[in-house]
Amino acid sequence: MSQKVLLSSKEINIILHRLACQLLENHIHFNNTALIGLQPRGIYVAQRLCAILKEEYGVGNVELGTLDITFFRDDFRRGQKPLEATRTNINFLVEDKKVVLIDDVLYTGRSINAALTALQSFGRPAEVELLCLIDRRFSRHLPIQPNYRGRQVDAIHGEKVKVMWEENDGEDLIYLVKN
């Protein structure tokens, strides 16, 4: 197994700032917009973006939530080991809001499909957008595309994108891992 660094910590930081600027451009004051990070690893992207928006651009009212999609996945009963749910924390109404779903890697689109289904439990948003840090564009099983993307990666079958976060893994790095 070999791995190649796709993005360094500095490059990830630059991309996150660009994505924050794109969100700011489209949502200005965030009065009716909520950011929702998908568990388990999209929450790190969402938290970082929220911090950048507040600290760098003075946006004070960004609503941030986390969404667990474990039991909404179409494959949750197919695995060999039992899945463990993580925590959903949406302490605001999504009804008639613009919601930005945030994940680290967009691969087949099945996680986003599950997230859209799970989100319906919290109301009917006015609009849903998708932001992903890494878009594996040649591996989609569903017709799902991001509104905001950090970097496109052309990974072939047998390659995996591994995202590491300082909060969880001790460093910010993104690898392309070949089996």
Score class of each variant (00 low, 15 high):
33 T>Q: 04
34 A>R: 00
34 A>V: 02
35 L>E: 05
39 Q>K: 13
39 Q>E: 14
39 Q>R: 15
42 G>L: 07
42 G>W: 02
43 I>A: 06
43 I>T: 09
44 Y>K: 06
45 V>N: 03
45 V>T: 05
46 A>Q: 07
46 A>S: 03
47 Q>S: 13
52 I>S: 03
53 L>A: 01
54 K>S: 13
56 E>W: 04
58 G>C: 04
59 V>D: 09
60 G>P: 07
62 V>D: 11
62 V>S: 03
62 V>M: 04
63 E>I: 00
65 G>H: 04
65 G>N: 01
66 T>I: 09
67 L>A: 05
67 L>I: 01
67 L>D: 05
68 D>E: 08
70 T>Q: 03
70 T>I: 01
73 R>Q: 09
73 R>K: 08
73 R>P: 13
74 D>R: 00
75 D>V: 04
77 R>N: 15
83 L>N: 07
83 L>W: 11
84 E>H: 12
85 A>V: 10
85 A>F: 06
86 T>D: 15
86 T>S: 15
87 R>P: 06
94 V>M: 10
95 E>M: 02
96 D>V: 01
96 D>P: 00
96 D>I: 05
98 K>I: 15
98 K>L: 14
100 V>N: 05
100 V>I: 08
102 I>W: 09
103 D>A: 02
104 D>R: 01
104 D>S: 05
105 V>M: 09
107 Y>K: 07
109 G>M: 07
109 G>T: 05
109 G>E: 09
111 S>I: 11
111 S>F: 05
113 N>D: 12
114 A>H: 06
117 T>I: 13
119 L>F: 01
120 Q>H: 10
124 R>N: 15
125 P>S: 02
128 V>N: 05
129 E>D: 09
130 L>D: 10
130 L>P: 10
131 L>I: 01
131 L>H: 02
131 L>W: 02
132 C>M: 04
134 I>Q: 10
135 D>A: 04
137 R>F: 14
138 F>M: 14
139 S>L: 12
140 R>G: 05
140 R>A: 06
141 H>S: 14
141 H>C: 12
142 L>H: 05
142 L>Y: 11
143 P>N: 08
144 I>H: 06
144 I>N: 02
144 I>G: 00
144 I>C: 02
147 N>F: 07
147 N>W: 01
148 Y>G: 04
148 Y>C: 03
148 Y>L: 00
149 R>F: 14
149 R>D: 10
151 R>E: 13
151 R>K: 15
152 Q>E: 14
